[in-house]
Amino acid sequence: MLVEWTATAMLSFGSVSSTAGASEAAEAVQRSGSEVREHIGTANISGLDRQTLLADLAALASETAIAGWDGYNASPVQRATFLQVRSFIDALPLHIASPTLAADPDGDITLEWYTDTAHVLSISISSRGEMNYAARVGLKRVWGSEPFIDEVPAMLIQMMQDCNPVLLAP
């Protein structure tokens, strides 16, 4: 919410400056406002939208309930997996961008933070709470496994921010 307010305030400031005359300072502020507007066009400014994410998780449940949901041999996603992902979402800090949800053919749920193919983090969560992740951050490729026990490891949170930064994150 703070992030949204700050972005809105900066936009308003930019538009006020557009009528402020031709001084160098006013022009600089106007340019700054334009740059912010351009950046906001592509950046995530709202952080974690938990309600929307949980609604999407419910939709994913119905889409993957039957074996072969992918048109091949996919295993159905189990209720235990949804409960693990729900707990994982609850454990995410609010300044993190919302991931997009999908599923692996083995029945794990995947959460992806994506800006482009050079900034992408994918985490698969299993019914037993295993987190298997793979990321590309710039030229660096990283993969590994962690158990999910109530908290999201700081290293993964950092990668979420690196792969899909929220504008003006606290």
């Binding site: 996919a74 295993s75 999908a102 599923a103 692996d104 083995d106 994506y114």
Partner: peptide, 22 residues
């Protein structure tokens, strides 16, 4: 055949190429 495997910008998620349990 699973629309979530395609990103809005028209690129493919890795999930699409992951193997099934077999």
């Amino acid at each position: 055949l699973f629309s979530r495997w395609v990103r809005n910008e028209g690129t493919i998620r890795p999930d699409a190429f992951m193997p099934a349990d077999d």
